[in-house]
Design a protein around this nucleic acid. Structure first.
Length: 347
DNA sequence: AAGACGGGGAG
DNA sequence: CTCCCAGTCTT
């Protein structure tokens, strides 16, 4: 008689588990703060990208009370480059909520779910990993594995509820946290989106998708939407010490509360965006090429202008000379950093 | 139920 | 280029 699926998965995991910085040693309960912090950073973000951020967050804010005492600007700065900056705002708000409760996280999935930035996945993951609750954590990896096990014809996310229920039914009472992490490791290293290694998979005897010969066909997905292009311009002056002017974006929405280079609003037509000349036209020049950033739902083409140090008029207004040195590196998206590097090369 | 929300990496 | 990734929130 075959051992149950969860048992076989855990046996595989005990040998093949990934050694990740936010994981405690085998058999040791990790700190809830570290589990929560890592799970938020890992939302829609790969483990490799998160690792250096996690190390910096933990070194700077070793405990939730320290994170709660930080300013939102500090948290956003530490988040710069990770994307989905609503996570930074929610992380800060959640830390303050936990601090108000005396520094203790809720210990149940339902209690965790009510916290800012904690959705179904993160609540299940923290409950299972940090508190040993028999909870499921359905992320992209788990959804893919479950869809393949059943060769599920329903495309994601319509199948979300069914997959969540099916996963919850598999969670073993004795090792719920290990089970959650085992599924994620299996998804990341074996049951990959492309080129799954079914020969190395402990679940392949149970897997309907393996038997079809086309495991990659699952989960089925809906057709992708067309993505419009928006045009923008950014212009700035670099001070001799490398500082430059930045401004704060609105508190919510795209890149909410992060810093950006000054420029006109993004447009869907090129006329009003990329070709729009910056103020002080005579003193600015357009840098060769464009900087392009592909967002989830549109592509931004940013034309970058720069003024040489010598050409920046000292009487152009205080605005160009109040650029704070501490603005550098704080909350800029990748495109802005590229633009700045581009401009520095051109000066 | 559908969109919005980022950035990096793989193929 | 397209697709995907340790998802959540808003409407």
């Amino acid at each position: 008689m075959k051992p149950p699926l969860a048992h076989r998965l855990l046996a595989w995991w005990d040998v093949h588990r990934r050694d990740l910085p936010w994981r405690a040693a085998a058999g040791v309960a990790p700190e809830p703060y570290r589990v929560w912090l890592s799970e938020v950073l890992l939302q829609q973000t790969t483990a490799a990208a998160v690792a250096p951020y996690y190390a910096r967050f933990l070194a700077r804010w070793p405990r939730v009370e320290a994170l709660a005492a930080a300013s939102l600007d500090e948290v956003i700065e530490a988040f710069a480059g990770l994307g989905y900056y609503a996570r930074a705002r929610n992380l800060h708000a959640c830390a303050q909520e936990i601090a108000r409760r005396g520094g203790r996280f809720p210990e149940t999935e339902a209690g965790l779910r009510a916290l800012p930035g904690v959705g179904a996945y993160t609540a299940g993951a923290v409950a299972a990993i940090a508190f040993g609750e028999k909870a499921a954590a359905v992320d992209g990896n788990v959804a893919r594995i479950m869809a393949r096990l059943a060769a599920l014809p329903t495309p994601w996310p319509q199948a979300r509820a069914a997959i969540a229920a099916a996963t919850a039914a598999l969670v073993p009472a004795d090792r719920p946290g290990d089970f959650a992490q085992a599924l994620m490791d299996l998804g990341a290293t074996v049951c990959r989106p492309r080129n799954p290694d079914c020969a190395a998979c402990p679940l392949s005897p149970d897997c309907a998708a393996t038997r079809t010969g086309e495991p990659e066909a699952y989960p089925r997905r809906a057709a992708a939407r067309a993505r419009p292009i928006r045009f923008g311009a950014a212009y700035f002056a670099l001070r001799r010490d490398g500082a430059f002017l930045a401004r704060r974006r609105p508190p919510k929405g795209l890149l909410g509360a992060t810093l950006e280079l000054p420029g006109p609003p993004w447009r869907t037509d090129e006329e009003g965006g990329a070709s729009a000349a910056p103020p002080f036209t005579a003193r600015w020049r357009r840098l060769p090429g464009e900087v392009e950033q592909v967002f989830t739902h549109f592509a931004l083409r940013l034309t970058v202008y720069a003024a040489t140090i010598a050409a920046v008029p000292r009487d152009a207004g205080d605005v160009f000379w109040v650029a704070a040195a501490d603005a550098a590196g704080a909350g800029f998206s990748s495109v802005m950093l590229k633009a700045i590097a581009h401009a520095r090369d051109g000066l």
